Computed example of a mutant assay.
Amino acid sequence: MIMDRLYGGVCYAGIDTDPELKYPKGAGRVAFSNQQSYIAAISARFVQLQHGEIDKRVEVKPYVLDDQLCDECQGTRCGGKFAPFFCANVTCLQYYCEYCWAAIHSRAGRSSTSHW
C-alpha cells in the first residue's frame, strides 16, 4: 500500500521468506503495472516505509533476471551466453554481455552508469 501510494501502479508486493523457517529474509519485491511507476520507484533509490511503530528506510533496486540475452547483440558477440551486466541507469535499463558493456559504456556520457 505504501509503494502504491508513493508511485502508483503496484500489482504485486511480497516479502521474501526462508522456505524452511518461514521467517522474513529482510527483502521484498514489488511489481508495477506500468513503466512510469517502475522508473519513479528505482529513481528514488531509497524510500522511507512507515506503518504504525515501524519506520524503516529501504533501498529500491531493480530486480535483475539471470537468464537474459544481451539487449544489444542478442548473444551474437558472446556465444549465446546470458548477459552478466544490467545497467540500472533509468536512461538505459538494458542487459549486456561483456563485449557490449565495454563498447556501450565506454562512450562519452555512459561511463558512470552503474550496473548489477
Rank of each mutant, 00 (worst) to 15 (best):
D18Y: 04
A31Q: 13
G52W: 14
K56A: 12
T76I: 10
Q48L: 10
D66K: 15
P24Y: 02
A13S: 09
L69Q: 09
C11S: 14
C70A: 09
D55G: 12
V60E: 02
G26V: 03
L65T: 13
F32K: 00
T76M: 07
M3T: 01
Q74V: 01
Y12G: 00
G28P: 05
Q50N: 13
L49Y: 07
K25M: 10
V60Y: 02
Y7V: 00
E72Q: 11
F32T: 00
K25G: 03
G75D: 08
Y7P: 00
E72C: 07
D18I: 03
Q68N: 12
G80I: 00
V58R: 12
F46Q: 07
K25S: 07
G8Q: 08
R29D: 05
L69E: 12
R77C: 13
G79H: 06
E53N: 12
C78Q: 12
L6I: 08
R29Q: 11
K81M: 13
P62H: 04
I39D: 02
L21H: 11
G26Y: 15
Q35C: 08
N34Y: 02
P19V: 15
G8W: 01
D67L: 02
C73F: 10
Q74G: 05
D16M: 08
A40K: 00
E72Y: 15
L49P: 02
I42E: 02
V58I: 10
P19M: 05
Q50L: 04
A13N: 06
V60Q: 02
L6D: 06
L65K: 15
